[in-house]
Lab assay of single mutants.
Amino acid sequence: DLSGKLIIKAQLGEDIRRIPIHNEDITYDELVLMMQRVFRGKLLSNDEVTIKYKDEDGDLITIFDSSDLSFAIQCSRILKLTLFVNG
C-alpha cells in the first residue's frame, strides 16, 4: 500500500535515488542526514548542500528549512529533489 507513503526521488549529478519515506514529519536536518547516507561518498557532512524540489510548474524551489520541506511534501506524494553541492 503506497498511499500512505511518501516517495523521495533525489538527484545528485547524474545519480538518482528513490527512497520511500514512512514518516512524513521529517525535519530538514533529518532530510540532510538521509541524503548524506543515500549519497555516501558523494555528499560529505561538511559539504554545503542546497536542496531544491520541483513544484507543479516544474520550477526548482529551494528548501531552506523544515517548514519549506513540509510544504513541499503537502504538494506531492512524490517529492523530486535535486541536490547541489557548493563544496
Rank of each mutant, 00 (worst) to 15 (best):
F39S: 01
V32E: 02
L83G: 01
K5F: 09
I21M: 07
H22P: 13
M34V: 12
S66R: 02
Y28P: 01
M34R: 07
L31F: 04
F64A: 04
I16R: 13
T27H: 05
N23Q: 08
T27Q: 07
K80F: 09
R18S: 15
R17T: 04
R17P: 00
N46K: 08
K80T: 12
G58Q: 05
L6Q: 03
R37T: 12
R18Y: 15
S45L: 10
K52A: 12
A10L: 03
T82K: 14
E14G: 08
D29Q: 10
L69D: 00
K42R: 08
G4H: 10
D59N: 15
K9M: 15
D25Q: 08
Q11N: 07
M34E: 12
I16V: 13
V38M: 09
K42V: 10
K80L: 14
R40T: 10
Y53N: 00
G41L: 06
D68M: 14
I19N: 00
L2S: 12
K9W: 12
S3I: 13
S66H: 05
S76F: 03
F71A: 15
Q36L: 11
E30S: 06
E30R: 07
M34C: 11
S67C: 07
E56A: 13
L33N: 09
F84P: 02
I21H: 08
E14P: 08
V38G: 05
A10I: 06
L31Q: 00
G13D: 06
V49G: 02
A72D: 01
C75A: 12
Q36T: 11
R37V: 12
H22I: 12
K52Y: 08
F39E: 01
S3D: 14
S66V: 01
S45Q: 11
Q11T: 08
C75W: 03
G58K: 04
I7E: 09
G41I: 05
I63C: 03
D1R: 04
L2M: 14
V32L: 10
S70D: 12
V38N: 13
D59A: 15
F39Y: 06
I8Q: 00
I26C: 06
N86T: 10
D59H: 15
S3G: 06
P20T: 14
L69C: 00
G41F: 05
D1C: 05
R18Q: 15
N86G: 13
F64C: 09
Q74H: 11
P20I: 12
K52M: 13
S45T: 06
C75V: 11
T62D: 15
G87T: 13
E30K: 09
L60K: 04
D65G: 13
V85M: 11
S70A: 09
L6W: 07
G58H: 03
K9P: 00
H22T: 11
E30Y: 05
K54Y: 10
A10F: 04
I7A: 04
S66T: 12
G4D: 13
L69P: 00
D47Y: 03
D57V: 12
L44V: 06
I61E: 04
Q11L: 03
N86E: 06
T82V: 06
D65R: 03
L33M: 09
C75F: 04
M35Q: 01
D29A: 07
K80C: 15
E14T: 07
S66I: 03
L12M: 08
R77A: 09
D55T: 15
R18V: 13
G13L: 03
R37D: 15
L12P: 00
T82A: 08
L69S: 01
D1A: 03
K52E: 03
K9G: 02
K5C: 06
E30F: 07
L43C: 04
D1V: 03
G87N: 11
I19S: 00
A72I: 09
K42I: 07
G4M: 09
Y28A: 01
I16P: 01
F84S: 12
D57C: 14
V32C: 13
P20M: 13
I19R: 01
F64W: 10
D57A: 13
S3C: 06
L79Y: 05
K54C: 13
G58M: 04
I8M: 06
T82L: 07
I16M: 07
E30M: 05
S66Y: 02
I19K: 01
Y28G: 01
L83T: 01
Q36H: 10
L12Q: 02
N86P: 07
Q11P: 00
K52Q: 10
K9S: 15
K42E: 11
E24L: 12
I78M: 06
G13R: 04
L12T: 00
F71T: 15
V32D: 02
L81A: 02
